[in-house]
Nucleic acid binder design. Structure first.
Lengths: 198, 198, 198, 198
DNA sequence: CATGAATGAGGTTTCATTCAT
DNA sequence: CATGAATGAAACCTCATTCAT
């Protein structure tokens, strides 16, 4: 109880890989992929540095793991929202989720968006494409909601909504101002409400 | 005078600093601050590596120089737009400018925004605050236009407009899709047009 | 008995060690001792990495096992050749064997010779001596044939013949040219034929 | 005089690169390319480890430098021998050179040959081809001598002579026996002498 | 100021070997 | 004996920064 030094193996096998993925997602979100060292992630996951490579052969694989964690979280959120009967409520639920993560956005931006921006600076590795794929998952889901609502140009509306989210996250982070998220989320919610029923 | 090796110091004296700033802004935009080395910037500016330090004492100062280049460009743009008599036309001119930089945004995102996102991952150095300041310059100018247009909540409108720009830049870059910029710029222009005259 | 996981231990028991030795000989010949990892050998032998250490306590023991495999092959070849009644035919049979392994020599050199060269770079471990011992086995056998042929200085002739083999293997490998083996083997055969009967 | 710590820069600029090449050739000959670390070479050249990379971007470039040193030595030797008027004397001079390096061959084998053998184990990098090129330089020169002597099949004779050298070097090294070089060099000299004048 | 060269801290990665089950 | 997982020592390499000329 005093030390966490006790062998983690006894608890559950395979949990380490999960711990590493979560640590990678978290640390990369906070520090950025370039500034994050393997040692940072290893420390956060309470795993010896050398052991990390048993689970992930390169640093890039760890970054990919962070990305897939964000994908997992997105899928969880979407599953949750899909239980709501009304697409309008689903979209407003999504926006509520963004509002709820306000402080995280202020400190570090959108996890997926800021990672995508960083990976987009690379010329090789293909991780940039992977990031685009995760973002497109959200876009497609949002588009589906607008379509179900019977709105014309659901693809454009999805771009506008998700773009607004990425924009507010970046501004809130750059200005260190939580009010940005509050205002924009309120505006977006009102925007959704302004749509007449199908 | 004796050697032809003698450089035209007086002629190029100030030019080197300028070249370094421009190179820093360009290379950092393309590669990101972390992935950019001093040697990269020196090469792009055609300045010997060892010489860089006479103009910029640290790498952070070079990043700050990149930021100030973006600030300079912003000021130039704003000066240009301020010549237009109508604030509505000024805002539409701003949006036209974004549309005109579409391909750059697709490849590397908004220069200031992506740099701000990267610097926001740092805990020290204060460059993140500097980036926020540059972004705020744009926000304030946009806000002034909305105010002059007589719109209520000009600050919120500015956040929405600039946020939309940051969002479209990030999405266009992540998806490698120029259409994102086209669509959103068209929408924003229509949005501005939807405001009645003061 | 309860689980089908139960392996046929008794059946495969000794086979694993044999598989590991063969894999070591093969992989070390192709990649060299230094570039070969325990994992490489384990994979080639289809033995779990952690299990290797029950058969070979160190990597050096595996290299020694590779050497002893080459020794075993040499002994098999010599036994075969010893069935021939004429020492001249035995020597020519040896050369034929070299010619038959031409393509292997072009790709990776003589298994024993290239391993001896690599081990000769070491200052410790004694494996270099072991490699010399295996090579001397061949030398002694060849010497015996020349002696039986009644040639003067059989030791010198053996050095010449085996040296020619090592030289052609190295050159064929370095030049990636199978013709080297063809030419030299033909020459050596003619050389043997040039000796008058005892 | 007591310490060699004094800045080497004062002596001659550019000498460091030369020192590194020589150290690489020497250490790689003694330890083999795989067992040689950058630190080993740096120490032998009295250069800080980090500085090595200013001159050679990768370890492979250092190995290539070692190879080119051997090429340089070969060219020097050949230039020397070319001063002799008689091709027979030139070839015997070459063999005398081998005999003179007897002890080095016993300890570490032929510098070029053992390096070629090691590089031949690689699948990538192209250094193996480079090693073959250097060996071919010697072959071609020897071939030219035999041709000038008016012997038939000069290419085959060159293969035989150079192959004998590589073979004796490998055997002498594997057996740790200088006598191998003595005997074989004597035999080769007699062989050359056995050719009638053109 | 100018410049190629120097330096060392720190990061990524590999791998022989050991250990818990 | 069997096995996946663990460990840490070392190797390669990068780069911001400094220095000698």
């Amino acid at each position: 109880m005093t030390h966490s030094k006790e062998p983690a193996r006894t608890r559950e096998a395979g949990a380490k890989r999960r711990r590493l993925m979560e640590a990678a997602a978290d640390v990369v979100h906070r520090q950025g992929a370039e500034r994050t060292t393997i040692a940072d992630i290893a420390r956060a996951a309470e795993v010896p540095v050398g052991n990390v490579y048993y689970y992930f052969k390169t640093k890039d694989e760890l970054v990919a793991a962070a990305l897939s964690e964000h994908e997992r979280h997105l899928n969880l959120l979407v599953s949750e929202l899909n239980r709501l009967p009304d697409p309008r409520e689903r979209l407003k639920g999504l926006i509520d989720g963004w509002a709820g993560q306000r402080d995280l956005a202020v400190r570090h931006g959108c996890p997926t968006g800021s990672l995508a921006a960083e990976l987009g600076k690379r010329d090789e590795g293909g991780l940039d494409v992977e990031a685009g794929r995760v973002i497109r998952l959200l876009l497609t889901w949002v588009e589906d909601q607008f379509r179900e609502l019977g709105r014309p140009d659901p693809e454009g509306l999805a771009l506008t909504l998700v773009g607004a989210y990425q924009g507010m996250s970046l501004l809130a982070n750059a200005l260190r101002d939580p009010g940005v998220v509050d205002r924009e989320c309120a505006r977006l919610t009102a925007w959704i409400d302004s749509f007449e029923a199908a």
